[in-house]
Amino acid sequence: MGYPKDLLSNRSIVKHGKFALITPEGLVNNVIPGFENCDISILGSPKLGASFVDYIVTMHKGGRNSQGFGYEGVETFVYCLEGRIKASANDESFELEEGGYLYCPPGEKMYLENLADGESRCFLYKQKYRPLEGYNPYIVSGNANDLENKIYDDMENVHIKDLLPTDDLAFDMNFHILTFDPAASHPFIETHIQEHGAYLLSGEGMYNLDNQWIPVKKGDYIFMGPYCLQACYAVGREKLSYVYSKDCNRDALL
């Protein structure tokens, strides 16, 4: 980095347990055992108030995790942002390019390897799985570019893609991609028990987080805690799109 060329500033906002906007310019690299030749930053985590952990990973040439990511009782998910990645689990291998993803159920380690000549980047997630008697999740892989773009809440200028099955109670979480045409918005300001970790794939917007309107753009990360008021408008000329996690299919714990 070297010496600063201007006054120190950052757009990030952190309200522990409520919400956070974490922007790329403030990220630092973390040493995570098992990741080789990778730059990796921890985004959402229990220290922020999340029940999951999100990472942004840049895999340099030859970058990998040959030790395996995940462990007993923990489910994992990877989404390829750019480049080409080999993701493996249970003797199955999947070649992921932009939009490609892999979900691994609890206890099934995920192995990652950069196949590109240059860098590959991915959004990585882990969470403790909440078992449900009679149901068992399973490996799921695909590419968001091949999925149906469904109209969201009867609004033709907002679309959603479901990356994991929505009708199978074995899954206690899902990943979705929400896309807003310029000037589109949520139908209302949401308030709910579910929490989200979201990575912005494109565009710019104004996001309401706990009734604060905050500018956001491609490359930003947003954590939304339980009952945090939330909604957004897309602004500018490009569609606003983000990939995000959501807990589902389970009752509230006492």
Rank of each mutant, 00 (worst) to 15 (best):
E72W: 01
P106N: 11
Y79S: 07
C80G: 06
C80F: 05
E113K: 14
F77V: 07
S93Y: 11
Y79Q: 07
L96W: 04
K109P: 02
C104Q: 04
K86D: 11
F94R: 08
G100R: 06
E98H: 13
G68F: 09
Y71W: 07
E98Y: 04
L81E: 09
N114K: 10
E98A: 15
D91S: 14
A89G: 12
T76M: 03
M110Y: 03
E75S: 13
Y101P: 03
Y101H: 12
G100S: 11
L81M: 13
E95Y: 13
E72G: 00
S93E: 15
E113F: 00
F77H: 04
P106I: 05
L102H: 08
G99R: 03
G83K: 04
T76H: 01
Y111S: 06
V78T: 14
G68P: 05
G70A: 08
R84I: 08
G107M: 13
A89C: 15
G99E: 04
G68M: 08
G70W: 01
L81Q: 12
E72C: 00
L81I: 14
L112E: 03
N114Q: 06
E75T: 05
R84D: 13
L81N: 13
E82N: 15
Y101W: 10
E113A: 12
Y103R: 09
G83H: 06
